[in-house]
Amino acid sequence: MSTAPFNYTRPKTLDEALALLTAHGGNAKLLAGGHSLIPAMKLRLAQPKMLLDITRLEALRRIEERDGRLVIGALATHAEIAANRTVASRCPLLAEVAASIGDLQVRNRGTIGGSIVHADPAADWPAAILALDAELEIAGRMRRRMEAAGDFFMDIFETSVEPDEILCEIRVPVPAGPGAYVKTAQKASGFALCGVAAVVDAKARRVRVAVTGVAAVPYRATGVEEALAGKPLTAETIAAAARHAAADITPLGDIHASAEYRAHLAEVNTTLALQRAAAR
C-alpha cells in the first residue's frame, strides 16, 4: 500500500519552513513524527504534493523551564517527554500522559506537536493540555502568537493553527498542582475511548478536569470543576461532581463504545483521576 508520489524537502530553519509552507499553499504538509500523516497517506486519504520534514529543527525539540513555564518543543517525542527529568519534577502529569500513548515504538517517533495539531478526538495529549491550562505558541511568517489551550481545538481534526502556521511550543505553568490521567483505551488502536486528566490546584481550592475521546472536541469538564470549587476533595464530593463529566456535550458513539458508555466512562475516569490527583 503505497502513498501517492510527493516531493520532499527538509527546511533548515523555522523561517524556511514557514516560507515553504506559504509558497506551496495548501499543497504542502509538515512531516514530524508522521504517525498520523503517513497512515493517512498510505490510504491516499491525504495526498500532499510536498512534505516539509521539520523533525530536525532542534529548536522545536527542546524541553526546558523558562519564566515559570515548562516549555515543551512541538517536536519533542512522547518518549522524550515521558523520560525527561524536568517534566518529571515540574509537571509529572505530562510524563504520565506521554507514557500512556500508543506503544514503545510509537512513543519513540510520535511528537506532541504532531499529535495536538492532528486533533484526533481520541488523542491523549489534549486532555493534559486543557487540564494544565497550557498555552501554545504558533508561528506564522509575519507573527508569532500565543493561543490558550481552550481556544485551540476547534473540531474533529481541526485546530486554530492556520495552514501556513507551525505550532512551536507548548507552555505549561509550573509547578503544576498534582495531577492524574486515567484512560480507557480502545482495545484495537490504543487510542482513548475516554481519557480524563485532572489537576488539583490546592491553593485556589479548584480542580481542572479535561476529557478526551468522548466528544468530537476535547473539553474541560466545567460542571465537574464548578461542583468542586472551594470544596474539600472527598470520595463523596468527587463522586457527586464526576456526574457532570459529560454534561453539555454530545458524546461520540461507534462500534467500540456507544455514546452512553463513553459518557459513563467520563464519569468513572473523572472520579478515578480526581481521587488519584488528590492523593498525590
Binding site: 480502545q186 482495545k187 484495537a188 488502536s189 462500534i255 467500540h256
Partner: peptide, 17 residues
Amino acid sequence: VYDEHGQLLTGEFMDYP
C-alpha cells in the same frame, strides 16, 4: 463487524482488537 449496508467496520488493526 459489518454495518447494515454491508460496510466492513473492522477492516484493519485499528478496529479489529
